[in-house]
Amino acid sequence: MHTLEIRDLVVALTETPDKPIVKGVSLTIKSGEVHAIMGPNGTGKSTLSKAVAGHPDYTITGGDVLLDGNSILEMEPDERARAGIFLAFQYPSEVPGVSIANFLRAALQARLGEGEDLDAVGYYKSLYAKMDMLKIDRKFTSRAVNEGFSGGEKKRCEILQMAMLEPAFALMDETDSGLDIDALKIVAEGVNQLRGPKLGVLLITHYQRLLNHIVPDHVHVMYDGRIVKSGDKTLALELEEKGYDWLKTETAPAVS
């Protein structure tokens, strides 16, 4: 049982530290829970996830992020990753010339101690089992990471990596962006397969439609750098019906 606690977090671009984008967000995710953060574009949802993962473009100017009670802010991005935080990227980077199989192998090897070697046979067995589960063609793994991938392929590649690295917490940044409805269903199915008591998920999305396929336990609405409303899955439906404008009027008194 793990806990990821985001406490009163303030985040700005590293080059403009005095202009916060995330303006004091608090959120606690426990293993087994799926939280969704919704909100209009430019309200700081993606910034929040990147800052938790340690992206160098962002600086945390206030608050803290605690993994099982310990702050991770002093940790390098790779240390955070090995500690169990996985970020599914909105725009995953290409890694030319490095096959998915080799990339994942290197990532798993990096989690072992010095002198320990990843068992190659066991690795491929587990890789193929996860690919079968996610209905991914085996030829996929010999392709270079994200190189020339369609939007759907990129997202499936992210899900496959998540399945193999078995993080404690997955931050999924706009996983549905750029996907048609079929691709969206496939990706959602993948996430649902991985859902379980050992995994905590923070789902960042602009649209309600993803939440038809991945049903969250908790829904938070983010607006202008803050979480302005939290609730259960019905909040997402309400939002769908009324639109984000409804929030502006709702939250106006609180902001002023």
């Binding site: 993962a53 340690g54 992206h55 160098p56 390098e76 991005p77 790779d78 990753a81 090995r82 996985f86 970020l87 990227f89 995953p92 980077s93 290409e94 890694v95 990339f103 994942l104 290197a106 990532a107 798993l108 990096a110 989690r111 990596q161 690295l165």
Partner: peptide, 14 residues
Amino acid sequence: MIFYMQQRGLTEAQ
């Protein structure tokens, strides 16, 4: 690209 790989657990050098 480096951040992407680091996010998967590789050190900067790796």
